[in-house]
Design a protein around this nucleic acid. Structure first.
Lengths: 331, 331
DNA sequence: CCTACGAAGTTAAACGTTTAACTCCATGGA
DNA sequence: TCCATGGAGTTAAACGTTTAACTTCGTAGG
């Protein structure tokens, strides 16, 4: 509650001098400097970042919008971004959009009013128009995980196409021909790209996937469970011997369905996931999956953001991060 | 970038009038009000919350400090708090302490400088002294999940003692006598309370647990894995037939060790966890566990915080939330 | 000896709000 | 007719910083 004014009074100098000492922005004589620090300590002075932000027009606060921070994938991104922010003395405001463009829009408004220096988002909206408000005001931002077609902005993505391709190749190499795919919401690019990778691999192998082999999920475990039950209900001539789920949560849901049906993984049904969340290694059997550098994506988003805050002019860059097969015992 | 001043100019009124219209703090004639709203819309005006906060001494920002937001348990708490904050038009700053009291202290400083209206924390420090800085400045705060002995503050806890007791009773009821326990870091009250519940149940059953049956973990899957391997390496006369792990992550780690040893759950070894994280239902076999109302704890923390911001005087309250056995197939 | 200069301090404006206190004016009651 | 009242607007101070511009003074160069 002590202010610069109080410190100045106690040290017997002007407010400006105290500010110069604190920020090291101008040389100050040693005696005065000592008196100021003494006063700062005695009064337990802490600068008021609101006042500073108001004056400097820089708040050292970033915003992060994700669909759901309780989803381990987004949690990891958040963690990466938070770590980087802390290292650079930025604070991070967390927002959950629930995948709802309207809620996302409200959050964008709040973050703008909060005068954040930059925003990282896993966008819920499908079109760049949703982010016009940011461009209009020249607020630095970076989109993570999901691509917005035609958007002029920094962008951090995993190589989802390659991931879908690798996962499917892996199953093909194991001798599978009837390979099913549990997709995510199809309007999201990560899911769509993974499915494209799947299709490419199948095509290269000369296999035309049956329509019933492609089943839409919503990235949650429950939907993987239902999709797998559907596959298992197919007549045996059409029933897949392997499933590629577009994320681990759905793969784990599928696992449960397979277990309940009394079938064994991988002997009866092989299973590949996507994301390599922590628990993928701990389910039984441990899940073969495609690892994304999730934490790194969060960090990189932070780096780009801070870089852009410091130098707005540069052209936007797209970062496509490599994915990696993690072979465990579900295949 | 438009300010009150710009809006006022365009509407042909004074700054104060615009403020009154925006906040509805004083009656304004219909014509003037209309002109103001027109100007607000035309200029895409958005209030600057820094300036407002500086003046009002209320920022409508809360802080949350957890050890690690990527841990599903804390992620859920964060989600609960964030939802409540959003509903009350508060923003939330997320901080990860990594369980390090020094880092926690730095974050407290940052949040104070940021002038947050209140702080929720899962404290890393073991003594109330760590939070003196908050009390000194009269900043509302609530501690979640972990109790600080002798701390005068609002506090949201799960009934960990009861949880440990129930879990152990459950195993005893299933006929187990040699029951091991994987604890968390012992200086944390949730872990200690759960262990006390375990001991109470054992004592009531007239069983004196061997020392080797109590093994310390760190709440991460890896440590559960190692603890279980240790149990399995005991001579068969001492080897436990059931394990109570103080959280799900460690239970899942233990599962893996059991699986690797070629033993079956629950036939050879029964397993109970704690927390009921989402994935507990999806591991194979599904994990019997003690459910905490995690999301609710986050929400309640937010409610208490906001209530205390509005009325500082009241005496602090402790909320002990009930836990619930969730019986699945690991026992 | 004068001047110019640099070091080290101070003053005051500015950032964008909120809000207490003031002005102005129409209205109605005595 | 006069005054009190209150509705609707304005003025200006305040919140806690930063920072450009100014003052003061000792010193060195010409």
């Amino acid at each position: 509650m002590a202010t610069l004014r109080d410190v100045a009074r106690r040290a017997g100098v002007s407010i400006a001098t105290v500010s110069y000492v604190l920020n090291g922005t101008r040389p100050v004589s040693p005696e005065v400097e000592a008196r100021v620090w003494e006063a700062v300590a005695a009064l337990r002075y802490r600068p008021n970042r609101l006042a500073r932000g108001l004056r400097r027009k820089r708040t050292h606060v970033l915003g992060l919008i994700v669909p759901d921070n309780a989803n381990p994938f987004f949690a990891e991104i958040a963690r990466g971004l938070e770590d980087l922010s802390f290292a650079h003395d930025y604070s991070l405001i967390l927002c959950n959009s629930d995948g709802d463009p309207v809620k996302e829009q409200r959050y964008l408004g709040v973050l703008i009013e909060q005068q954040v220096d930059g925003i990282a988002l896993v966008s819920a909206g499908a079109t760049p128009a949703h982010l016009a408000i940011l461009q209009e005001r020249g607020i630095p931002f970076v989109v993570v995980d999901r691509d917005l077609p035609g958007l002029e902005a920094d962008c951090v993505l995993a190589d989802n196409f390659q991931g879908g391709y690798l996962a499917t190749r892996h199953l093909l190499d194991r001798g599978h021909r009837r390979i099913a795919c549990i997709t995510g919401p199809s309007d999201l690019t990560p899911s769509a790209d993974r499915v494209r990778g799947y299709q490419k691999a199948m095509e290269e192998a000369g296999i035309e996937p049956l329509e019933v082999w492609i089943r839409r999920g919503d990235f949650r475990a429950e939907s993987g469970y239902h999709a797998a039950r559907f596959f298992l209900s197919l007549p045996s001539s059409m029933r897949p011997t392997a499933i590629f789920a577009c994320n681990d949560l759905m793969a784990i849901g599928a696992m449960r369905a397979v277990g309940e049906a009394g079938l064994r993984i991988p002997q009866d049904i092989a299973l590949v996931g996507f994301d390599d969340i922590v628990l993928a290694a701990y389910v039984i059997p441990p899940l073969t999956t495609v690892a994304q550098p999730t934490y790194e994506m969060g960090r990189l988003a932070g780096e780009l953001l801070i870089r852009r805050i410091q130098a707005r002019g540069r052209p936007p860059a797209r970062y496509l991060l490599p994915v990696r097969m993690v072979v465990r015992h579900s295949t």
